[in-house]
Design a protein around this nucleic acid. Structure first.
Lengths: 140, 140
DNA sequence: AGATACTTGACTAAGTGGATCATGTTTATA
DNA sequence: TATAAACATGATCCACTTAGTCAAGTATCT
């Protein structure tokens, strides 16, 4: 359902968001150390994040990455989609029998519900709670 | 999210359920022809369904499969789980940082929502609509 | 100049899902 | 009783994705 790639990307974006007040860019090394994400894998992930325009890279010594967007403008769904979340749809036999179509509706409803949850959580929501030290109590 | 394996299994169970009034068992050939599921793959699927106790096999000529449970006692979630739906949990770095735990909650909420939908649809619900010729309008 | 850090591209390794094949066993029926 | 229909079982295979690695290069600060 959620891949490690998406999970790591969200962790990284959350790290950037929660430290967006800092002047200096944040290096992959810091993120890797902080969250236990394999370094070389982070490189790949940031290539996608950069291509999507979410982050800006700063090369050279003291370089790293900086958030290019406001945390309140990014949802987890957008990050997940950038990382290839659900680019393949639901299974289908290709036939249009009643049974087939009924099941399709159920799968579709599931996808819709998942996307709804992902899109309802913005980076700023998480970063805010992060700073307050609240680790729980999202859903009422 | 939903694998072809689960999709095929649900189609097959739906076929058995909608024809559960018939005396003769239903052969894999019929299901394969009706729904366009690759024959040899159906064999595998029914091995799991049989092991789970959902169906009964009748060997020999004129053999096939028969439903062993009442359609109103089986939800799509149960079928999906029999076919290995989500036996691997959500990704995790293993760390217990605030960021990690917050994301875990979101992934957890997604799983919960999907399972909720799957468990709310019983085989009898679909079979009933199947007989009435209604192919749409599940959710109000 | 040298250390730090991102860039790019190719590459590997493992796992999974989808699908197939061969061979055997059971049973109805002509 | 022979034969065909149909399930039973086990092995195997291929394609694809995911996770992770490596190496050579470029930019920048000190």
């Amino acid at each position: 359902m959620i891949s490690a790639r998406v999970h790591y990307a969200c962790l990284a974006m959350l790290e950037l968001a929660s430290r967006s007040s800092e002047e200096a860019p944040i290096s992959l090394r810091e993120i890797s150390d902080q969250h236990g994400v394999p370094g070389p894998f982070l490189v790949q992930i940031f290539r996608s994040l950069r291509a999507a325009g979410w982050v800006q890279s700063v090369r050279g010594s003291q370089g790293g990455y900086r958030l290019l967007v406001r945390p309140e403008d990014v949802s987890l769904l957008e990050i997940a989609e950038t990382m290839g979340y659900q680019d393949s749809g639901n299974p289908s036999t290709g036939k249009t029998t009643a049974a087939e179509m009924m099941l399709q509706e159920v799968w579709e409803e599931m996808s819709r519900a998942s996307r709804e949850i992902l899109s309802s959580v913005r980076l700023s929501d998480l970063a805010e709670r992060f700073h307050r030290g609240e680790a729980s109590m999202f859903y009422i």
